[in-house]
Amino acid sequence: MSKTLNRRDFIKTTSATTIGVATIVSGITLTTFANANKMPVTNEKRWGMLIDTNKLTEADIDGMVSACQQEQGWGSELHSTGNQKPGWIKKLKVRDKATGKISNLALMCQHCEQPPCVDVCPTNASMKRKDGIVLVDRHLCIGCRYCMMACPYDARSFVHETLSNQKEHMPRGKGTVEACTMCVHKVDKGEAPACVASVNSDAVIFGDLYDASSKINQTLKTIQSAQIRADLNLNTGVRYSGI
């Protein structure tokens, strides 16, 4: 027995299939999300870092840079030259004009409470999580680079070439902007960011700035620390002592 498919049947079958597939797919997506984020991100925490430039050696900083490169998979770009190369974290040597004191420090995204990059981003690709981590959504970034114009810390890089073999947790891509993510993929699993873990001393402390029992909170209460460009009133998540 042969049956010709008329238009009504066709619509019925296709609709049924579409609804079926959509239900299954949305189920899968929901399950995946639930698995990845057992605990929702809240503003009860504020992740931060304290870098003590008196304790941090130049070798420590080099180690932090290479740990970041290895973890996030940047730094082996083939075509980008000079200032086109990405720099999620970099080593800076600064000299005080009055005293002549030289300090070495690691500079990366300062994870501001009031981030200028988030303010200027036209598409909401630059965003701040509730726990204070500033990120770029690679699916919304159109590559306008306004955030790079707005960042007072030269912390962001633009991907100038085609990339391959990206890390699974870090979908870097040509034509979008990137920066330190404070290793959010590790932090969400309860681990420390790669650069922090690479330093053997307590020259770099990572933790919840709000948690009165955390080491970073207690240290910040007792020592004198500074924010870079504190005059801009951005309330950075990364703090420094010794500068």
Partner: peptide, 14 residues
């Protein structure tokens, strides 16, 4: 360059 560290001179890195 931007004034990252007012009152200080950047010798390396930026």
């Amino acid at each position: 360059p931007m004034a990252l560290f007012p009152g200080k001179e950047i010798l390396e890195g930026y």
